[in-house]
Design a protein around this nucleic acid. Sequence first.
DNA 1: CGGTTCTTGCAACCCGTTTGCAATCATGTG
DNA 2: CACATGATTGCAAACGGGTTGCAAGAACCG
Lengths: 165, 165
Amino acid sequence: MNNPCGQHQHPHRLIQQPLDELTDRLRRHSRRVTGPRQAILDVLRRHQTPMSNRDIHAALGQGCDLATVYRNLHTLEGVGLVRRFDLGDGAARFELVTPEDDGHHHHLVCTRCSLVVEIDDCFPPEFEQSLAQRHRFARISHRLEFFGVCSRCEAGESRPGPVEA
Amino acid sequence: MNNPCGQHQHPHRLIQQPLDELTDRLRRHSRRVTGPRQAILDVLRRHQTPMSNRDIHAALGQGCDLATVYRNLHTLEGVGLVRRFDLGDGAARFELVTPEDDGHHHHLVCTRCSLVVEIDDCFPPEFEQSLAQRHRFARISHRLEFFGVCSRCEAGESRPGPVEA
DNA sequence: CGGTTCTTGCAACCCGTTTGCAATCATGTG
DNA sequence: CACATGATTGCAAACGGGTTGCAAGAACCG
């Protein structure tokens, strides 16, 4: 993988975590292991790209209420099992986080068909640190997403729906 | 200004553009110069940090309907007079764009008091280009914003309201 | 000045998300 | 292993940002 500007890379979750391991992590945070939670974690386990609340609810097929999905994703995020992403279309997306990985990575989104590619590289941490120092900001972090048109869409074969203007 | 990683900088609007110049640009795009539009441009002229539709509407003080603000910011964005930013709190923000500058820059946002600092540096374009090539994406762009806690909030003196979780 | 076309205000509406409430369930304890 | 208890769920109503249909009201062209 190319590495312009010497940026570091975030090795991230390609391995599927066992469901038990996930629910154990819930228990460790004194959260109850309920049907909806297991179902949600199971759905996320099987997906490599970020899913919206609606996506998850749909994948659950009437398994639980949409409000429950929302509430649980908050909970899971708070506990660190899941990471929230904002791909610019007004709906939050979530991905499972592995214990080794903090889930920090970015995405390349096709503005035509919504295809999402996981991106592991990023600019070097010194960049951010320098910014923090210059402006006297503490606990700095960033949000970075890329947008473009994938080769298929560029070739003319649009498929699903667009993401943002 | 520091420049880690040799990233380039976007010199951006610090000069206040005359209102006439702005409305001229409207005319050039065959858009009518109406009261609400002048008022909105005038409000944006006087502000250096991004404003939400609500902010602008409030600053106009019953000057025009909120729906009109929304519609006009779309129009202004389409014409290139204004640039839209997403600071992660679910409300679009806008900044005036100067003719020389494309408005591409980023922000550093305090998650406690919502203070926004304009950031002029960015990673080098080769980074993005390399990404595009590797993944066969065309017309690539990015969205990058930084979050942290400003020195004042870190020191304990919170003022307004928070931005994101 | 008058007509044509773009804009505006208003109100209803859309969509993602949150919340109050009563019923239900997971879990620690005895 | 049954219970008590507090966390969790489902449902429906509410919320906030943003959009839209429509009729009235301007800009602008000639």
